[in-house]
Simulated assay, not measured.
Amino acid sequence: MFFNDIKNDISFRIGDRDIILMEHQSSWNPNMPLRMLWYIAKLYSRQLDSQELVYRSSLIHIPAPEFYVFYNGSQDEPDCQKLCLSNAFAHATNTLELIVDCYNINYSPRNKLLDSCYELRCYSIFVQKVRDGIQEGLELKTAIRQAITYCKTHDILADYFQKNESEVFDMVNFKWDQKRALEIAKEDGIVIGEARGEARGEARGERKATMKIALSLLKKGLPVGVITDSTDLSLEEIRKIAKDNGLVF
């Protein structure tokens, strides 16, 4: 969760009753209901046998979904709001609805959610301190170090930062490096693309750079979950990269 500006999707089930989908974002996206619809459809399709849908005569029970977004971008948004899929429809209809509960987790002393969740409040303070340092003109690395020191000295997840300072620093710092790498890949893709295949060249350039980043992280021994979240590559793609380069996976 210490990645900022990289989507961090989580889904889990509570027995056979509920399925919870959550996403952490630093760019406001009013299309989250449509994205969540896509996510839940893919999850259901993985869990259910398509033949059952065709031939089973009794009702198929499925876990009920809940959708949440945790937002900490720079755009001013309410502490809590609901986004409805129906708002995107070309005309009013009651045939389909999906509601996403969106929570602004930017630090505020009056944020009820942060007041009720100590860990989330600490995370929000840490992110805000990094941003404050950058706004003051500090280099990213210095801003991160300063934010970590602040949290440790003010007993804000002090034990966690004490034990995981190096990991947190690498994760937060890597976000900016990865973003720049993808920007460079995009530029390379445009340069090498022919006039008619410019878009395809751009996509190939981005993918090539992303695969290089994944390989580098594999060599450094980072957790697979961190690599998939950072690159948007699937587990199968990561496994293939490791195999092609003779790495143990």
Rank of each mutant, 00 (worst) to 15 (best):
P109S: 10
T210A: 14
P30D: 07
E23Q: 11
F249T: 04
Y123G: 01
L215F: 00
R17G: 06
E187N: 13
L218H: 05
G225K: 10
N106W: 01
S234K: 13
N87A: 12
N87D: 15
L120K: 05
F3G: 02
A185H: 01
R110E: 13
A242N: 09
E136D: 14
G15C: 06
Y160R: 02
K141Y: 05
R46H: 09
L222Q: 13
D232S: 14
N104C: 06
N106D: 02
T142Q: 14
L43D: 14
L217R: 08
N31P: 00
L215Y: 02
K219V: 02
L140F: 08
S57F: 04
K82W: 06
S50P: 03
T228D: 07
L222Y: 15
S216A: 15
K220C: 04
L222P: 00
N173M: 06
L114E: 06
E167P: 00
T95D: 11
I190M: 12
P30S: 06
T231L: 01
A214H: 10
R204G: 00
G221H: 04
G225A: 10
E183N: 14
Y103R: 01
E202G: 00
L222W: 15
A88C: 04
Q75A: 13
P78K: 07
Q25E: 15
T153K: 13
M36D: 01
K82G: 02
A242P: 10
G221V: 03
N106G: 05
I10L: 13
Q25D: 13
V172G: 04
Q146G: 03
I238W: 01
V100A: 04
F3Y: 09
E183G: 09
I184L: 13
D132Y: 03
Q135G: 13
A90Q: 13
S57N: 12
C151Q: 08
D132A: 06
Q81C: 14
H154V: 02
C84P: 00
T95K: 12
S26E: 08
R121F: 01
I105Y: 03
L215A: 01
G197R: 14
V127P: 00
T153N: 11
D18S: 07
D232M: 10
R17P: 00
N104K: 08
P63H: 04
L138F: 06
E136P: 00
D159P: 10
Q178K: 14
V168K: 05
C80H: 13
D76I: 12
M1P: 09
K208A: 15
Q81A: 09
Q146F: 09
L120Q: 08
K179R: 15
N111G: 06
S27M: 02
F2E: 08
N106P: 02
I213R: 03
A90V: 15
K175P: 00
K141Q: 08
V226C: 02
F89P: 06
K243M: 10
T210M: 15
S116H: 05
G201L: 11
F2D: 05
A143C: 10
V127E: 08
A195M: 11
I105D: 04
R13H: 08
I156Y: 11
F3V: 03
F89T: 03
Y39C: 03
D16T: 11
K7P: 06
C84K: 13
D49R: 12
S11K: 11
L217S: 10
E139F: 12
Q146P: 00
S26W: 01
P30F: 02
K212M: 12
G221A: 05
T149L: 12
A214E: 07
V100Y: 04
M1D: 07
I241P: 07
P65L: 10
L247P: 00
N29L: 01
